[in-house]
Design a protein around this nucleic acid. Structure first.
Lengths: 158, 158
DNA sequence: TATTGTTATACTCTATAACTATA
DNA sequence: TATAGTTATAGAGTATAACAATA
């Protein structure tokens, strides 16, 4: 028997494909985002804030998965360029509200649709039910991965 | 009709799930890799070299998707720790062969299986046919993404 | 001329932790 | 004491381009 040479696991190909697929996405997406003069993190913030009336750094960090310390730097660079503004307009005076400026909103309005248009030809190569199935399976896998990664509990943050 | 408020695209949820799923994987995987004293890039190199008799920087860069300039630094750090070695043993004297040292091979033998064991509980939550389907769909999507990202042609590299 | 790998620069992100000002 | 956000540090990755040696 040649069982010694059998793959050690059945999930390794999925790991590989997940990584390759994400990297391929990042390459296609990132190229366009860089053309807009933004980094991936900056675009993430703009896209998250777009269409909202602002949110706190904590909410923004949770939504974008950008680390607290990094977020300050990202917001600094976006604020320098006049795309976002910070204001102390919430009840809790420890907290600030981050929102898009009119210029940031304009960038969002233009760039977000343009970005989707940039990505669309790739995703159009899959049938709608394939896309739906992909999304559903990825959600299943994400839940499984998160259940093993105990940082969903933000209790031990200090 | 309320079509104006319909989602602009059908693939946006897939994008979100792909990003979330990969990030969840990176978090689970990265935690363990860091415990080994390696970064993701370093582990990628070790895992790629493991079980081979070495390869050139070019091949290694292609396999790991690590940028040429970055690869030099990654290899420097691995070489400092005695995990890889570079030798000029190929016919082409511009090229070098990178391979694991015995210490690197030992690290690979131990850490790779341990890493798989670390990940296994998460992937075990999906049925084998779900995993197979996930891998197949991710491969489909990756091919679609790559077909729109013209850097598969390494011709315009200069 | 083209290719392999190295070097250099400037920027960004990560992880970590200390710090402030509030609560 | 705990939380929100900032600051600081060290390390690593990215993009880009110039460079030396070789093909």
């Amino acid at each position: 028997m040649e069982d010694d040479t059998m793959p050690r696991t059945t999930f390794l190909p999925v790991v590989r494909e997940l990584a390759r697929c994400y990297q391929a996405f990042e390459r296609l997406s990132g190229r366009h985002i860089r053309q807009l003069g933004l980094t991936a993190g900056q675009f993430d913030v703009i896209a998250t804030l777009g269409g909202t009336d602002g949110m706190s750094c904590r909410e923004l960090g949770d939504a974008t998965l950008i680390t607290k310390g990094t977020l300050t730097g990202v917001l600094d660079r976006l604020a320098e360029r006049g795309l976002i503004e910070r204001c102390a307009c919430s009840g809790d005076r420890r907290s600030i509200t981050v929102r898009l400026t009119p210029a940031g909103q304009a960038l969002f309005d233009n760039s977000f649709d343009a970005h989707l248009a940039h990505l669309k030809p790739a995703f159009d190569q899959l049938a709608p039910d394939e896309l739906a199935e992909t999304g559903a399976l990825l959600a299943r896998l994400r839940e499984a991965l998160e259940s093993e990664a105990p940082d969903c509990c933000e209790i031990q943050n200090n």
